[in-house]
Design a protein around this nucleic acid. Sequence first.
DNA 1: GCACTCCACGAAATCGATTACGTAACTCGC
DNA 2: GCGAGTTACGTAATCGATTTCGTGGAGTGC
Lengths: 349, 349
Amino acid sequence: MSSPRSAAARVTMRDVASVAKVSTATVSKVLNDRPDVGAEVRQRVLDTITRLGYRPNTVARGLRSRHTGTIAILTDDLEGIFTNALMRGVEDAASTYDVSVLLANSYGDPERERKHLRRLLDRQVDGLIIMSGNRVRPRTGPALPLPDTPYVFLYEYGVGQAVPSILPDDRGGAVLAAEHLIEIGRRRIGFINGPASWEVTADRLEGLTDAMRAAGVPLDPAFVRHAPSWAPEDGFALADAMLAAAQPPDAIFCASDDLATGALAAIHERGLSIPGDVAVVGFDDRSLAVHQRPPLTTVALPLLEMGLVAGQRLLAAIDGEAQQHELIRIECQLRVRASTVGAAAFRRP
Amino acid sequence: MSSPRSAAARVTMRDVASVAKVSTATVSKVLNDRPDVGAEVRQRVLDTITRLGYRPNTVARGLRSRHTGTIAILTDDLEGIFTNALMRGVEDAASTYDVSVLLANSYGDPERERKHLRRLLDRQVDGLIIMSGNRVRPRTGPALPLPDTPYVFLYEYGVGQAVPSILPDDRGGAVLAAEHLIEIGRRRIGFINGPASWEVTADRLEGLTDAMRAAGVPLDPAFVRHAPSWAPEDGFALADAMLAAAQPPDAIFCASDDLATGALAAIHERGLSIPGDVAVVGFDDRSLAVHQRPPLTTVALPLLEMGLVAGQRLLAAIDGEAQQHELIRIECQLRVRASTVGAAAFRRP
DNA sequence: GCACTCCACGAAATCGATTACGTAACTCGC
DNA sequence: GCGAGTTACGTAATCGATTTCGTGGAGTGC
């Protein structure tokens, strides 16, 4: 009494071979587009394959051919605010090439990280994406004994220029923001940067400084501040302090959308209009940006593209192309919304 | 001229066997804790394993033993707002048992979904977690030809009671919110529900209704509304409308945190105090909740636990335990914050 | 017509483990 | 002391593909 479905053993290459009256070698050649198969036989094999519904077993294939068609994402924070978008990019790139993606979460714990790495290598992954994606604590790169397997760092600051690595163009993003504010006529620009312990804050400050110097607009040091954290509360506090000045800023650039939402609240609370009295620009383009009141102009991190590029670079390296051991920066984009342009519609009643 | 590192072939079981002067069968038995190995030989094998740094090849093992120690998450939205937390739960459960997690993103497209599923089955995954995690469009369950492989639905509404499935206790969550509001003395409670097309909104409405009936507090039908979407803008609009009533509500319960942030803004804009004039409760406990002004009391979705339970159920099924074909609801928790209790500190100046 | 090259295909080894089964040595009971 | 039962280990088949190499026959050149 065997149910027909569950008893239905998988169709194997041997089955195809015997039905098509050829050897398994020939079936394999057809499957892998090898040249030394006659047209007639090839067609017969293909017909048999579809008729029997044969699907090659990836595990067996992997054992023999040494590559499994699998890459892994090893991250320190699966719930990081940027993790999803980065992962989606990687997954997109991978699934385009019929490659599967394994997921491993280390919580930033080196011990877990090593354990996962071992497990992944035992699994014969063809490549690794080592990714951060959080804004909780800075990383200076994982403490991994790096394997022979190809790998790419994604959104990992502090791993240097000499390893394959993908980062956003933080400096360029800040330039975009500054140029935009200058273009709409702002001259007293405040900058609420992230915590100084984050490497990224230096690049963003540099971009802002450079752009303003280029435009001949002075940057008041009193209006350039590092927040103690990336949280809205700190954005609120620092913006509030700046607005209390005798000559308050007419624009505030924040190094994160979270900081910017705090700044928006501080401006509202003082009864000032946005962007009439103070324009605000954020950084990241998280989903909350568009739902602010007013919707927040912000510098969009190219997370999806970063993930895509990381995936493509890794797959290229797996395919045998010489891996370029260098840092690649992906351009940010400015998303202009009502917090910098348009009627001062969001003044409080 | 072979570089010592790259030429270093992997240590295989055969190597261990020959060094330890036993057969590969014996090594395998030691590795799998089989009883028929003598203490002395077992020790010798173990020593050799550590000395050579041998690690079993998962692919080879998978080919022979039919299970690969891999499960897959098949999701319709890798960037869904709940995806991360659910995934983390699953990954946690899996990695505890040394099981790896594959990731597949279908974008809700049935064609991609089928393609991914085929690929995963070719890969011999031991089990599947079929997961939604978005709040963009409702799903009524994937249109999949379900495999013999064990599976669990996670956060998939509309798949019915008769398949293994994990959902939050939406009704219970709404009860918690209602009881809390009643307990702090609110009597005119408004409810901004999500779009009626979402199955979940019925459960949450039911919870609210039941709790208020139980407490003998009337529910004004004019204050029970379905928002056209889950976005803050709709929360703003509906809250604003309720507040315009002759007798406005003294509390607003929103079926999502996003709706609640809109409601907070509407209340602020009318110059009312929170929670003094109007208390607000959200649903979800997304990270933005805690950063609201005031921090938002909300019903926390047990996402992490849902993921864990899903993973554990799946692993149990893989281990051969009879799979329970039933829906499991995980309890929500109320997170009390300043939008319902504490001084009316957040009144606008 | 003969030697040689291609072409198309198959036989068999192989990847690295697991596992059914066989067997030598040892124990035990009577 | 001898047959039965246990114990501890090895032999070899096996999982499902890929890949090397061998071979028969057709085609080519002289």
